[in-house]
Each structure stands twice: as structure tokens, then as C-alpha cells.
Nucleic acid binder design. Structure first.
Length: 299
DNA sequence: GCGTCCAGGTCTACC
DNA sequence: GGTAGACCTGGACGC
């Protein structure tokens, strides 16, 4: 047994960039993640197999990542291992990107990607959390995505410290009504989609968590995601990226707009033309597209 | 402060 | 297979 506070570390791959990973997309801005300064630290709540949740603060060194664990009870060795494993999964530390980086080095406009250690996309501790948050990004502004996620955690999550709430378990959401979710979470017409997903998980009809380690073909995973009501072409494409599959672009209005600025002097083009543009990057096309449209975030 | 309009993906009905 | 319309909310804007 180890008494808190506890600091553990874990090795990072050569060239890894903590800020480029945390800033890879907007997840760091959605609870339970917190980050006053996303370039240097990230706070997260990590659920453990023992059904406990720990509050961690992540900061990066050049060869190791520092994990400060804030919680009150004793911490077993296997719980520390679980924390380390979840953090590695969230920051994609074990994802092999050598082939992608080699591709980037052959493209002058992508040479910055391996130089700045970009290409690892932050994900939540669970696939369920990633899917619900992606559902909350559909057909709304980022401010509404933040409102929905904040309400969901505050009203159905568990308070682990004053003002600090876990992402709720599917069963906690499954117990609520459609009308309650619309009223309290502000998720509008997405409420029945969220409810159906949570009840499917709660009843055992669907299990999202194995998708991260699945060896099934990408198109099979895509079909699985599209079978979830409310997850369309855009959301499925972006969830696939969080599963380490980059065959789909996940085009939304922002990608259309950025693509037009970067490649067409501001003139918008049909999605099919955007798809064709990235075809030559093969199974990395979705990641190349993401790097291009977010390049200025990493400048 | 109030009303109106718009933007944002997905689903369903219809052709 | 392609398309129109409905879904719901926050924010911008005009009054």
C-alpha cells in the first residue's frame, strides 16, 4: 500500500510533445478534463477497475511524463498501474506513428508535424465518454457542446471533491427520462439518442470499450459506430480517429471552411472534392487532414 | 428585454 | 441513391 499524495511517472516516446497532444482538439476544454494552461498541464479524473476514481495532474518532461495523483485513501500498486495505463491510452503514448511521420517528412508542408511531435489526439479514459462527447458536438456550437458536457457531469456524475464531478456511468444516464435529459442537460433532440445508447450499454446489447483494441477492419468499426442513433458520417469519422483509425476525414463545417482557405483561396468545394484531395495519403488521410486544418494551433 | 434569424449534423420520409 | 425538411439550442442582431 502507498499513502497519498503520490507521484508516478511513465516514459514518453522520442519526439513526443505534451502540448501538441493536449491541444490536438477541444477535448481538454470539456469536463472532467481541466486545463488552465493546456501547454503545460492537464487535469483528469481517471476511473479505476476497483470503481474508485482518482484526480490526476499531468505534466511532461522530455523523457518522462509526470502523474501527480490527488486522492485521500491508500493507493494499491495495481491501481497505480491502471492509472499509468489509462494515461498512456489517453495521450496515445503507445501508438506507432513512424510510418505517418515518414509520410510527413516526404511532404514539405507536413514536415512540421514530426518536428513538433504532433499527431497524437487526446482521448477520454473511456470510449463511452468519447462517443457521448462527439454526439454533443453534432449540429451545435462549441459553447453548447461545453454546456451539455458540463451539465451531464454535474448532474449525473459523482462528486469526488468540491466542484469536481466524474463523467457519469451509462447506467446513471439510462435511468433518466428523455424529458429530464432535454431539460437538465440541454441536449435537445439528442436526448433520445443518448438514452438509447446508454440503455443499450446498460443492458449489455453493446460494449464500446473493446473497440480501442479491436483488430476488426476499419469499415466494420465504422458500421458499428453508424449503428448508434445520432452518430452520422462526421461523428463516426472522428470517433474512428480516437480509436487510432484515420481512413475517414470526419468533415464538418469547420473543416470545409479551413480546407477552402488552405487549398482553394476561400472557395468552398463539395465534400467529395475534399475526400479526393486526401485519398493519396491512404490510411493516414484523416490524420493528414487534421494536421493541415490545425497547423496554426501548433505554430 | 424581447423577438427573429442563423448555424450546426443526423434522421426520416419521399421521390 | 439523392434530397428536403424537421429536430433544438445558443448567439448575433435589430428594435
Amino acid at each position: 500500500m502507498v499513502r497519498t499524495p503520490v507521484t508516478i511517472t511513465t516514459a514518453v516516446p522520442k519526439g513526443f510533445s505534451f502540448p501538441a497532444t493536449v491541444n490536438s482538439h477541444g477535448w481538454y476544454d470539456l469536463p472532467p478534463f481541466r486545463s488552465a494552461e493546456p501547454y503545460s498541464e492537464l487535469h483528469a479524473l481517471i476511473p479505476l477497475p476497483t470503481r474508485r476514481t482518482v484526480d490526476v495532474r499531468l505534466t511532461a518532461g522530455t523523457v518522462r511524463l509526470r502523474i501527480d495523483i490527488k486522492q485521500s485513501g491508500p493507493l494499491k500498486k495495481e491501481e497505480q498501474d491502471a492509472i499509468r495505463s489509462t494515461v498512456r491510452s489517453m495521450l496515445r503514448l503507445d501508438e506507432p506513428l513512424e510510418e505517418f511521420y515518414a509520410l510527413c517528412r516526404r511532404e514539405p508542408h507536413l514536415r512540421w508535424v514530426p518536428k513538433r511531435g504532433a499527431g497524437r489526439i487526446l482521448r477520454a479514459p473511456t470510449v463511452f465518454e468519447d462517443v457521448v462527447k462527439m454526439l454533443f458536438t453534432t449540429n451545435c456550437s462549441w459553447s453548447l457542446t461545453r454546456i451539455q458536457t458540463t451539465h451531464l457531469t454535474r448532474k449525473l456524475g459523482t462528486e469526488t471533491a468540491p466542484g469536481l464531478f466524474t463523467f457519469p456511468h451509462p447506467s446513471a444516464i439510462a435511468r433518466m427520462s428523455d424529458a429530464w435529459l432535454r431539460r437538465e442537460i440541454s441536449c435537445g433532440y439528442r436526448a433520445p439518442y443518448l438514452l438509447a445508447l446508454c440503455r443499450s450499454i446498460d443492458s449489455g446489447r453493446i460494449d464500446l470499450e473493446p473497440l480501442r483494441s479491436s483488430e476488426a477492419p476499419t469499415e466494420e468499426l465504422y458500421r458499428t459506430l453508424r449503428s448508434i442513433k445520432g452518430i452520422g458520417h462526421y461523428a463516426a469519422g472522428n470517433i474512428l480517429k480516437l480509436l487510432g483509425r484515420y481512413d475517414h476525414l470526419g468533415i464538418d463545417s469547420w473543416v470545409r471552411s479551413r480546407f477552402a482557405e488552405i487549398h482553394r483561396n476561400g472557395r468552398t468545394v463539395p465534400d467529395a472534392a475534399i475526400e479526393r484531395h486526401y485519398d493519396r495519403y491512404g490510411r493516414w488521410r484523416g490524420l493528414v487532414c487534421l494536421m493541415e486544418v490545425t497547423a496554426d494551433w501548433h505554430a
